[in-house]
Design a protein around this nucleic acid. Structure first.
Lengths: 321, 321
DNA sequence: TATAACCATGACGTGATTTGTCACTATTAT
DNA sequence: ATAATAGTGACAAATCACGTCATGGTTATA
C-alpha cells in the first residue's frame, strides 16, 4: 500500500478507535512501529489532535468528540440512505422509533438546496409499501436490548389459547408482513418459541439467571423451532401462478422447489396440529395448487370446502345489513 | 511538498474548483502534468468520483461529490440508519443498487470501534424479512429516472395475456410484497396502468413527446386507476382473524373497516372482470370471511369451491410421483 | 479537412523518499 | 526491578515518484 493511502486510512482508523498503541497499528497495517511513529507525527503536523502517554497502559489518544467524521456521501448515496430511512418509517412500530426521525431530519436539513430539491422530486416517485397493521409493538426496544445483553424477561403474553406471565430469554426480533416477532427461549415451555410482539403486553427484566445462548441468533431460527414428534409429510404441486403466490406469502415449514418451466412443488414435514392452517392455505391457492399428501390434509381441505359450500350454498340465507 | 500532502491538498483544490484541467493543476502545484495525471488516477482509486472529457473545453470534473457537513449522529441514530440501509439490502432489486452498499460501507467503516461492536451484536438480533422473489427488476433506475425527468419510455412488456412493445410515461415506482411495480401512463391503452417491473424486458427512452403529468405522482394512485364502467358493489364480513389476514395481504380495491371488537368488513366497488380474483381471495380467507354481495361473486366462489371439491374428492384419483 | 486543445498510457533512468533495523533514551504502572 | 510504552537518530536497501519523451485518441472549431 502506498504511503498516501496508508495515511488516509490511518486517519480513519485513528478516528474509529479512540485509543490505540503504536504496535497495534503496526500490526494492523503490516508495517514497522518506526513507520507508524513517523506517520503519526505527520498526522499531527496535518492538524489531527493526537495525544500520547508513555508507560504501561499508555498509548495514543485522539482528542475529539464522539461524532462520525465528515462523511462524504455522493448525492446518490445520500438519496439511497434517505429512502432507506423513509422506507422504515412505514412501519408502525420500530425498535429505534425516535432515532429514525431525528436521523432523517438531520440528513434532510444538512442537504444542499439543489440536492434537497431533487430528493423532493423523488419523494413522490418511489415508495416502499408494507402492510399497515393496527397492532402496536411498544416493547421492541426492551426485547432487542434483552436479546443483545442476553437477559431474561418476564412478559405478559396473550397467546391464542390463553394469556399469562412467563419468562423468556429473547434471541432476536424480526418483522415480516407488517408484524414484529420475537424468537426467544421460553422457560415455561422449555423450548424456543416465536412470540408476536404485539401480543406482549408488558416486558420487564427478571432476575432469573440467563442460559448461555450467546452463540444462538436469528440465523439459527429454522433449526431451533423443532418439529413436534407428531409430524406428517406434505407434498403439493404448484402451477406457475401458485409458485408466485407461495413466494409472496411464504408458508413456514415446507421447502419450495421451482422447476425450469416456472411450476414447482412444496414438500416437507409439518406438524399434525397445523393441518387446519395448511388446509386454509392451500384452499387459498385455489386451482394453482394440488395437495397430494398427506391424506389427512386432503380430508381437512375437503371438510373446509364443504363447510364453505354450506356458507355460500343458499342465496336465500344471505342477510343484508 | 510530500506526495501525501499534495494529494490532500489536491482533494481540497478539486472540490473547490468544479472543473479544471491537468495543466492548470500542474502549474498550481509546480509539478509536471504527468504527475498530476498520476495523482488524479490515485484520487479516483481512493473513491473520489472524477470524470474527464477530452477535446477543447474539455477537462476534468468532479461528479456530485457533496460534502455533507460533519453530522453528529448519536450512536442510536447511526444504528437506526445502519439498519434502515440493511433492511433495504434484502430486496433483490433496488433503484440504487450500488449506492446502498457503498453508503453502508462508509457508515460502517467510519464508526468508532465500540459502536461498531455493538452494531455487530445487533446484526444477528434484528431482521427485516421481505418475501424473496426470484424475479429481478433490472430496469428500476431507468424507470425511476424517467419518472423524475418525465420522459416517455419504450418498453418491452410481457403481460399475462400478451407481450409486446409499448410506450409508457412513468409516474413512479413502488415495491410491495417483494415485487416492484411501476405506475405509468400507457399510450397503448390511453390510461394509467400499473406494470410489474420484473415483466419489463427492456426500457429505453423514446423520442415521443411526454404529456404534462408533473402534478401526478404516486400519491394519486388510487384515483388514477379508475374503475371500468362495469363494476359491482362488494360487501363482506370479516372475523377478527379475517381482519388480520386482510391487513397482511391487502386486496387492491375495497375499503377495510375495523370495528372495536376486532371484527370488520370489506366494501367497495370492484370490476366485474376481477371477480375470479376475488373469489380466490375470499376462499383463501376461509371461514374468516363471508361475502354478502354481489351475487356474482358468491356464485363464482361456489363454482370455485365445487371445482376444488372435484380435485380433492376421490382419494382414488390421487397419483403419486 | 486540418488544427489545436484536451486526455491517456507506456517506457525509462535518475534521484528522492520510504522503510526496516538497530541502538539508544525516557517515562511510568505494577 | 521489570515490562510496556513512546520517542530519536543513523544508515543502507528497497521502493517510489518524477520528469521526459513518445505515441495515440477524441472533439470542437476554423
Amino acid at each position: 500500500m502506498s504511503k498516501a493511502k496508508r495515511l488516509m486510512e490511518l486517519i480513519v482508523a485513528v478516528n474509529r478507535k479512540r485509543r490505540f498503541t503504536v504496535k497495534e497499528l503496526a500490526d494492523e497495517f503490516g508495517v514497522s512501529m518506526r513507520t507508524i511513529l513517523r506517520d503519526l507525527q505527520e498526522l499531527s503536523e496535518l492538524g489531527i489532535p493526537l495525544y500520547s502517554e508513555v508507560g504501561p497502559h499508555g498509548g495514543y489518544r485522539i482528542l475529539q468528540e464522539r461524532l462520525l467524521p465528515p462523511i462524504a456521501f455522493t448525492e446518490r448515496e445520500a438519496a439511497a440512505v434517505f429512502f432507506a430511512v423513509q422506507a422504515l418509517r412505514r412501519y408502525s412500530s420500530l425498535p429505534f422509533e425516535t432515532e429514525t426521525s431525528t436521523a432523517l431530519n438531520k440528513f434532510y436539513t444538512y442537504m444542499q438546496e439543489d440536492v434537497r430539491a431533487r430528493i423532493d422530486k423523488m419523494r413522490d416517485r418511489v415508495d416502499f409499501i408494507t402492510p399497515v397493521r393496527r397492532a402496536q409493538s411498544p416493547h421492541l426496544p426492551v426485547l432487542l436490548d434483552a436479546a443483545i445483553r442476553q437477559v431474561v424477561l418476564l412478559v405478559d403474553y396473550a397467546s391464542k389459547q390463553q394469556r399469562g406471565k412467563r419468562e423468556i430469554q429473547p434471541i432476536g426480533i424480526y418483522t415480516q408482513g407488517g408484524l414484529w416477532y420475537c424468537l426467544a427461549y421460553c422457560f415455561l415451555r422449555k423450548s424456543f418459541r416465536v412470540f408476536r410482539c404485539d401480543r406482549i403486553d408488558s416486558a420487564v427484566p427478571s432476575d432469573s439467571p440467563p442460559l448461555d445462548l450467546q452463540q444462538i441468533h436469528l440465523g439459527s431460527k429454522e433449526e431451533l423451532i423443532r418439529l413436534e414428534e407428531d409430524s406428517v409429510y406434505l407434498y403439493a404441486d404448484l402451477s406457475k401462478e401458485g409458485v408466485e403466490a407461495c413466494e409472496a406469502n411464504p408458508c413456514p415449514v415446507p421447502l419450495l422447489h421451482v422447476f425450469n418451466d416456472g411450476t414447482g412443488r412444496l414438500e416437507g414435514n409439518v406438524e399434525r396440529s397445523d393441518i387446519p392452517y395448511f388446509a386454509s392455505y392451500f384452499v387459498g391457492l385455489g386451482k394453482e395448487a394440488t395437495v397430494r399428501q398427506p391424506k389427512e390434509l386432503r380430508a381437512a381441505i375437503r371438510q373446509l370446502l364443504s363447510d364453505l359450500m354450506v356458507r355460500y350454498a343458499d342465496e336465500g340465507i344471505v342477510t343484508q345489513e
